[in-house]
Design a protein around this nucleic acid. Structure first.
Lengths: 211, 211
DNA sequence: ACTAAATGTGTAAAAATAACACACTAAAAA
DNA sequence: TTTTTAGTGTGTTATTTTTACACATTTAGT
C-alpha cells in the first residue's frame, strides 16, 4: 500500500494486473519474498524498485491468508503501508504500468486487494491519529493548510482551523522555517501565514513513529 | 500467545521445546498451517486442540519473518493473541507438556519467541485500553475487584477504585447479576459490593471487539 | 479489644477537546 | 470600479474527560 497525497486527495499507487483473469483491473504492488529475505526488507525492496525512492516510511499492517485468494496457488500476503511524498516520486520517470489512484474512487481491484486496501486505509486512519505520520506525505517544508488538508482528506472529516493549529503547536514537532512560498497563487487572507508560511519537522523532538 | 489470568497475574501457556538445541526452553504454542487453511482457522485449530476450549477470543497480532529464526529452515510465524478463562481450561485435563507461566517471570525462550511474546504483550496492553477484552480472561460472572485486578496486572499499574468503577459503569457493558459470591473468604469492607457482587457482560451492548 | 487492611462513596481540580464570531484580505464576478 | 465571495488570523468559553483525593466503616487477624 503505497500512499501519496496530491491535489488534496489521498492517492494510492497501483499497477495493472498482469493476469489474464484480472485483465484491466488494478492491483497493489507486491512481489514474492526471496528465501532468505526478511519481509520488512522485501517490502522495502519492492518499494524502492518501484518508486526509485529511499528513506521512506514503511510499516507492517497485517497478513492475509484466505485460500484461493490467488488463482496461481497458495499465496500469503503480508501487507505493508508506506507513505511518501508523491511530488518527489513523480519527478522521477514514472513507470508506464503504474498509476496513482484516488483511494475513494477505486471500484474494483484484482485478487482480494480491495479488501486489503480497505483494511489498510482504516488502519492508517487510526494510526495517523496516534502518531505523527502525515509529514511523510508532504514535502520537507509545508504550510499548516497543507497539513490540515492532508488530515481532512485521510480522515474524511472537516477540522477546525484554530484547534488544529493549537494541537500541532502544542506537540512541538513543527519548526517555523521563516520562509514563505511565493510562486503559487495567493489565496485570500490577511497575513498568508496559514497558507504560505512554511514549517518543517523538528527532528530533534521526533525521532520515529513512537512518541 | 494464549493468555490467562490467575492469582492476580497474567499468565501465558507454554510448551517445552521439542528441539534438541532448545532443550529445556519454553516455546509458544504453534503449528504449521495446512496448504488450504486460512491462518485464522489454523490458529483457532491449534488453540482448540491444545486447550480443548472453543468460543475463545483470538486475533492476529503480527508476522515475524527474520531468516534464521527457525533452525530447521525458513519459517514465517504469524502471531495470534488469545485470551481465555484459565479456570475453565484447568478443569479439563492438562496436557503434561503444557505449563502456565507468569508473563513477567519468563527469562528465556526458544526461537525468537521471547521477542514475539514481548511484542504481543505490548500489543495487548494497548489493545485492552481501546477495547473491552478483559472479560475473556474472567469467568462469566466476576466482581469489579477481579476486573480491576486484571487491568492492573496487565497494565502493570495501580488504578483508582472509584475512577475504575465510574469508567466501566459509564460504558454500560456490565450487568449487575444480583448474585453474590459466598464460598470465598470475605475481605474487609462494608457491603461486599466491590468484592463479591457479580457482574457479567451485557451482550446486547457488546457484540464484538469493535465498539 | 485492638490493629491493620480493604471497602463504599462523591466532589473538586485539571486537562483535553470542541465550539464558536468577527474583522480583514484578495480573487472573482458583476 | 464596485460588489460579492471565499478564505484567512486570532482568543475565549463551554463541555467533556481524566485525574486526584479523605474519611467513616467493616472484617480479619492478632
Amino acid at each position: 500500500m503505497i500512499f501519496g497525497f496530491d491535489e488534496n486527495e489521498l492517492k494510492i499507487l497501483l499497477i495493472r494486473s498482469d493476469l489474464e483473469i484480472f485483465k484491466g483491473q488494478w492491483s497493489l504492488l507486491g512481489d514474492f519474498a526471496a528465501d532468505n529475505e526478511e519481509l520488512d526488507g522485501a517490502a522495502y525492496r519492492v518499494l524502492c524498485e518501484r518508486t526509485g525512492m529511499t528513506d521512506v516510511y514503511l510499516e507492517q499492517v497485517r497478513t492475509f491468508s484466505k485460500p484461493g485468494r490467488h488463482p496461481g496457488g497458495r499465496v500469503l500476503t503480508v501487507a505493508y503501508c508506506s507513505l511518501l511524498n508523491i511530488e518527489q516520486h513523480k519527478l522521477g520517470k514514472m513507470d508506464n504500468e503504474l498509476h496513482w489512484h484516488t483511494v475513494k474512487g477505486i471500484r474494483e481491484m484484482a485478487f482480494d486487494h480491495k479488501e486489503i486496501m480497505e483494511f489498510s486505509y482504516t488502519w492508517l486512519q487510526k494510526r495517523i491519529m496516534e502518531h505523527p505520520l502525515g509529514f511523510n506525505l508532504l514535502p520537507e517544508k509545508f504550510s499548516l493548510r497543507e497539513l490540515q488538508n492532508l488530515y481532512e482528506a485521510i480522515l474524511d472529516i472537516k477540522l477546525d482551523r484554530r484547534n488544529f493549529r493549537k494541537k500541532f503547536f502544542s506537540m512541538d514537532f513543527l519548526i517555523d522555517t521563516g520562509e514563505y512560498e511565493d510562486d503559487v497563487p495567493h489565496r485570500p487572507g490577511r497575513l498568508y501565514q496559514f497558507n504560505f508560511e512554511k514549517y518543517e519537522l523538528n527532528k530533534r523532538r521526533w525521532t520515529g513513529i513512537d512518541f
